[in-house]
Write a protein that binds this DNA or RNA. Structure first.
Lengths: 338, 338
DNA sequence: CTGTTAGCGCCTTCAA
DNA sequence: TTGAAGGCGCTAACAG
C-alpha cells in the first residue's frame, strides 16, 4: 500500500538510484535532483520499506535482549537502561522473556544468528561453555549483563563488594549472628551469578571479622517474597536465631520483614534486616539496602554492544558498576552480647 | 554466512521450490523428496532467512506494543500478559517505550505502517480522533488496552466499577469525608483514561450515598509515590481533613500512607487508605485495594489483535475485564461523626 | 510432483 | 551526476 522507491523516482523524474542516494546521503547528487526527490518524498509521504533495506543491506537493524522474568523490578530497570540506548539508535529492540529452562536454551540457541539480530544482550543468564562458543562462532556480538563468562564481554555490578558492604555494615553495628537469605545458588537456571557473588562478599566480611560461617544461617528459595518469608520463619525458629538478616534482594528482604512481623519480632529492635537493589518501596519501608545502578548497567551493556556491532571490540572485557550502601532504619546497633 | 535455500536445494539435488514446499508444507511433495530435503536441512543446519521471508510474503511477522513508562509495575504486568500470547506465536514483539509527548506522537504516527508491523497494541495512551482515523486507514489493525476510543477495538478493566467499589467500601465503613488522590486527569499525555473512569466511579458512589463532592478533597499529581505524598500532606493539613483516602493506584496509596506517617496519623486508626492494582507489596503493607486482572487484560488484547491480523474482526468491540475488592487492614469502620 | 523464473523493495556497482 | 541492472533469500505462479 505505501509508496515504493520507484513511485518516488517516477514522480521526481529520476532513477531509483538517485532517490536512494539522496535518502542515504551516499554518492554525489545535484542540488536540483535532491530538491525534486525530497519534494516527491514529501508528497508521497514515502518511507523506505525497512524489510527491503534489511535484505538488501544484509543487516537486521535489530538487537535482541534475552532476559529472565522481565517482570521483576530489577530486570525492568535494567531493560529501561538498555532501551534508552537503543531507542535513539536505528536498532529495534526485541525482548525475549525467559520463564523456563526450555525457553532459555531455545532462545540462546536460536536468537544469535546474523539474520535474526545484529547483536544480542543476555541478562543474568549465564551461558555454559558450549553456548558461549556458539555465540563466538555465530558472527553476532553478544554482551552479558549482570552475569559473566571468561570468553565474553560483560558488565556487572560488583556484587562481591555489595555483599561485603552489606554484611560489613551489620558487623560494624555489632552483629555477629548474621543470616543470609537468597535465591537457590546452584539453580538449573544459571540465573543467580549475582546471588553467588553476594554470598562471597558475605563470606569475606565474616571472615575478616573472624566470625564463623554457620550453615544454619544460610537459607535459599526461589526468588519471591513468599519464599523468603518461609526461609526467615525457619531462621527465627532456630534455637539460636540470628540478630540480623542479609537478603539478596529487596523483594526478599520484604519477605523477611513480613516473617519477623509474623514471629512477633520488631525491625530493627529485635532483628535487623538489610536488602539489596533499593527499589522504590524501600524508601517507604525504611529499609537499609545496597543500591545498584541498574539503569546504568543496562545502558553500559547496550553501549558495549553498539560498539561491538560497529566492529570496535570483540574482546571479553569485563566492566564493573559500583554499588552504594543506603542506610535507613531497618538495622540497629546492638551491644556485644558475646 | 548461514546456508541459503539454494544451498539446501543443491545438496538435496532438487529445486528451491521443492525445498520451500517441504519447509512450508505447501503444495504436494513426494515422500522421497521430502526426506532428502529434510536431510539436507539438518546437515546444513538451515533456517530460512526471516527477512527474506518477510519481504517475499509482504508481512513483517512483527507486532508492536506502544506503552508509556513500561517501568511501572502495572504496565509490566500487562506487558507480560501480551508477551505470553505472542511468545508462542510466530510474531516477534517489539516494545516502544514512551516517556515523552514527542515520542508518543512519533510512535503513534510512524509505527502503524504495514511494512513495520502486522499489528499494534497501544497501552493506556488514548489516541485523538485524527490518530484513530490514521490507524484505520493505515491498514494495520490496532487494539487499545487500558484505554478506549469509539472507533477502535479495546479491552479495559472496568474502572468506573472499580472506583465505585473502592469508594463504596469506604462509605459502608461509615466514612463520609473521602478524598481522591490520582494522576492529573487532563494531562497532555492522554494516559489517564483509567484514573478518570475511577473518578467517575468515585462520584457515582458518593452521589448514591448522598454525599456531596468536595473540591478540596480532590488532589492530583504526576504518577509517583512522591507526588501522592505531597497531595496527601495537603489533605491532612486541611481544616476539615478527610477520614479516608482513595488513591488511584497502589503506588500512590503508598505515598498517602507515607504522608500519614509523616503527619503523625496512624493507618487505619486515624485515616483509612484504599489503593488500586493489588501490587505484590500491597499484601505486605496490608493495603486494602482493588485488584485488576492486569495480566489477563494484556493477554486478551493480544488475542484480539491476533484475530484482527487473521482478518477476523475490525469492529470496535469494547471488552471489559472485571475487578475485585481485596480487603486488608488499611481501612477501618468509623462511627458516624456527622 | 517438480524445476524455472519472476517478483518483493531496496542498495549498489558499472557504464554512460 | 545519473540510470540501468543485478542481487539480497524466499515464495508462488507457471510450465512441464
Amino acid at each position: 500500500m505505501p509508496a515504493t522507491i520507484r513511485d518516488v523516482a517516477k514522480r521526481a523524474g529520476v532513477g531509483v538510484a538517485t532517490v536512494s542516494r539522496v535518502l542515504n546521503n551516499s554518492g554525489l547528487v545535484s542540488e536540483r535532483a535532491r530538491q525534486t526527490v525530497m519534494q516527491a518524498v514529501a508528497e508521497l509521504n514515502y518511507v523506505p520499506n525497512p524489510t527491503a533495506r534489511r535484505l538488501s543491506l544484509g543487516k537486521t537493524f535489530t538487537v535482541a535482549v534475552i532476559v529472565p522474568f522481565f517482570t521483576r523490578p530489577s530486570f525492568v530497570e535494567r531493560l529501561r537502561g538498555i532501551d534508552s540506548v537503543f531507542a535513539d539508535s536505528r536498532y529495534d529492540m526485541i525482548v525475549f522473556n525467559v520463564e523456563s529452562v526450555q525457553k532459555r536454551d531455545k532462545y540462546l540457541a536460536e536468537v544469535p544468528r546474523p539474520d535474526r539480530a545484529d547483536g544480542v544482550i543476555v541478562v543474568t543468564l549465564t551461558p555454559n561453555d558450549t553456548q558461549a562458543q556458539a555465540f563466538k562462532t555465530s558472527g553476532v556480538p553478544v554482551v552479558l549483563v549482570d552475569t559473566h563468562h571468561t570468553e565474553l564481554p560483560s558488565v556487572m555490578e560488583d556484587s562481591v563488594l555489595g555483599g561485603r558492604i552489606a554484611t560489613g555494615h551489620l558487623i560494624e553495628l555489632g552483629h555477629r549472628k548474621i543470616a543470609y537469605v537468597s535465591d537457590v545458588l546452584d539453580d538449573v537456571f544459571s540465573a543467580t551469578a549475582a546471588s553467588l557473588y553476594r554470598f562471597k562478599g558475605y563470606q569475606q566480611a565474616l571472615e575478616v571479622a573472624g566470625i564463623e560461617l554457620r550453615d544454619d544461617y544460610l537459607k535459599h528459595g526461589r526468588h519471591s517474597r513468599a519464599e523468603a518469608h518461609r526461609c526467615a520463619l525457619e531462621l527465627f525458629a532456630l534455637p539460636d536465631p540470628p540478630t540480623a538478616v542479609f537478603a539478596a534482594s529487596d523483594t526478599q528482604a520484604i519477605g523477611v520483614m513480613e516473617a519477623a512481623r509474623d514471629a512477633g519480632l520488631r525491625v530493627p529492635d529485635d532483628v535487623s534486616v538489610i536488602g539489596y537493589d533499593d527499589l522504590d518501596v524501600a524508601g517507604y519501608l525504611e529499609l537499609t539496602t545496597v543500591r545498584q545502578s541498574l539503569f546504568e548497567s543496562g545502558q553500559r551493556g547496550a553501549q558495549l554492544l553498539l560498539n561491538a556491532i560497529d566492529g570496535q571490540l570483540i574482546e571479553p572485557v569485563r566492566e564493573s558498576i559500583p554499588v552504594e550502601l543506603i542506610v535507613r532504619k531497618s538495622c540497629r546497633r546492638i551491644e556485644d552480647a558475646a
